[in-house]
Write a protein that binds this DNA or RNA. Structure first.
Lengths: 338, 338
DNA sequence: TTGATTGATTGAATCGATTCATTCAAACTC
DNA sequence: GAGTTTGAATGAATCGATTCAATCAATCAA
């Protein structure tokens, strides 16, 4: 019969007939304890149902074995995948990952950074929303380093792991041209989002290189509903003026376009082709599977966590680095050659 | 210039010229401190960049201001929505939510429960995977209560928040009959999953009441790919033997069916209608918007967290209760009356 | 004026695990 | 057999915030 709440280390020591130091060693450096005592201690732990108090442990030892991760939107599959990758690496290092959701809200973002500081996490993985770089630098001086995720560090003060959105945009447009598009369009916004800006720029440059014009449909956000609206707009254009292909700044938008086109009797890809961005699961699971630009999501999380541990573990000898992945186009039915 | 790592409470006290007790009071019971000293302390905190050490705090006070939440799959939007609801309630109570992912793996599930115990969370929200009820009861005796989420407690030893899957299944089938289906089918499995079993039973009972037969296509899992396979199978049946409507045990499966039907030239809903379950975002965002059974996901999380806090806060006076929500059918194009 | 009451402030004791200098015993060297 | 090395085990000191009984000052009642 395991005892009630709160057997502690001294209780274990007493029951096993050893000192507290020995019990602590069994917990933390088991190979430095003789087999005999070790098994006695383990038996006592089992009998008492002892669970080590993490607060006490980290108070004394100064380290917490946990990382904080702050993302823009936990509901976005992109971020859960990135988090999964980071969590795996954290687990390898015997750390746990505290996942928090800033929900694109500067106040919440600050509040969670407060929390991370109070918890004394060993490091932070963050996709910044508000103006937090200064604060992050301050946190580093206090011993809590951070790595930027899905965002290229503008200074060399941080490690960052991101994706080359310009290249992704170019790949999308090159693909559209290669299947014969002569009137491609870009749908997305706002351009204050770096990702949107980059994806557009890549596409625009590629269009210029290919000698085709690129129409622009700017949107105030990247949501599904917005895609539907723009889709209706495009569907109502005269066939001769209508784009023969669209590159949407993300998959949500692309799915919105797709639904609108289906409702308006526009055939995809025959009348109009579509490329999305992100390659979320539902891109391939749409009735008309969607061509999209795929980012190595788990890998982004893994690499970010690795860079973070590198900075945590190395005393001073750490050099910040910017990892930039090149996204890949995955061709599916929505851009089938006509 | 804020100071380096580790200003502590005594430093603040010294700088402000008060005792440590007063600083602690400013932090925890600000109204018991005179305005004068309070502002002096706050100034000192600001100047030193003091951040309270949560480990020390909770070691001494015994409470952690955090909940643990353990879900089957963080990548599943259902769970992220439930978590969001729970997180909001936790925030209202000034607690933070530690979200963990058992990934339908009994070993990980146990490991995370270990972690929660070590962290001394105040309570646990869990969708159990393995055989953990006994352990959870033991944890309660040690002062860590738990609430079952998306799972009806079989004993009255736990609070639980779940959805009436039988009613959901019945609603789906009633709807199909009401739009004129005479050869409905159920697609889903395995039947060892309580949810699948219940949804099927509700549908089967409703079919019997309506006097129509219910065909069954059993699947080994609930994934998209499986839906596509079954869809191909159905698409190859002679029109006369082919179901005129299918009820899929979840939306992933339904989307798979939809894609397959589209590829095989079956029109939805004219040739065959589809109802899904869960009403994930992508159900309504499909090219042919999908009728689905909607669960109040955030509400489930909120209610679960409220029940948990009730048990945490009440000394002994807590009575376990089972909350069961009735899901609602959301009719869309995939079951438009012919 | 005195005694009682209220409210603010103090600071030593405390939470529970870890650390590390020290002790002890055994094994080894010459 | 004396001296040295090695490995295990010990337990008091420690991490930093909170607690609470005690103190002090100010206000009030009679």
């Amino acid at each position: 019969m395991p005892s009630g709440p709160g057997a502690k280390l001294t209780d274990v020591a007493a029951l096993a007939g050893v000192s507290v130091g020995t019990v602590s060693n069994v917990l933390n450096r088991p190979d430095q304890v003789s087999i005999d005592k070790r098994s006695r201690v383990l038996a006592a732990i089992d009998q008492l149902g002892f669970v080590r108090n993490e607060s006490a442990r980290s108070l004394r030892s100064g380290s917490t074995r946990s990382l904080g991760m702050l993302v823009l939107d936990v509901r976005n599959p992109f971020f859960t995948d990135v988090a999964l990758g980071a969590e795996n690496v954290a687990e390898d290092h015997n750390h746990s990952l505290i996942l928090a959701n800033s929900a694109e809200n500067a106040g919440r973002e600050q509040a969670y950074l407060d929390l991370f500081e109070q918890q004394r996490v060993q490091g932070v993985l963050i996709t910044p929303f508000g103006n937090v770089l200064e604060r992050l630098e301050k946190m580093r001086t206090r011993g809590i380093p951070s790595v930027l995720v899905d965002r290229l560090a503008s200074t060399d003060q941080f490690c960052s792991v991101s994706v080359d959105d310009v290249a992704g945009g170019a790949a999308a447009l090159d693909h559209l041209v290669s299947i014969g598009s002569v009137r491609p369009a870009f749908v997305g916004g706002p351009f204050t989002l770096q990702q949107v800006e980059d994806r557009y720029r890549g596409a625009a440059d590629a269009a210029e290189r290919a000698g085709v014009p690129l129409q622009l449909f700017e949107t105030p956000d990247l949501k599904f509903e917005r895609g539907r609206q723009v889709g209706d707009l495009i569907g109502n254009l005269q066939p001769a003026k209508r784009p023969d292909a669209v590159f949407a700044a993300n998959d949500q938008l692309a799915l919105g376009l797709l639904q609108s086109f289906a409702a308006n009797g526009l055939r995809v890809p025959e009348d109009i082709a579509i490329v999305g961005f992100d390659d979320i699961d539902f891109a391939s699971q749409s009735s008309i599977p969607l061509t999209s630009i795929s980012q190595p999501r788990q890998l982004i999380g893994e690499r970010a966590a690795e860079l973070l541990f590198d900075e945590i573990d190395s005393e001073h000898g750490h050099v910040h680095s910017q990892v930039v992945f090149t996204p890949e186009l995955v061709a599916r039915q929505s851009t089938l050659r006509r």
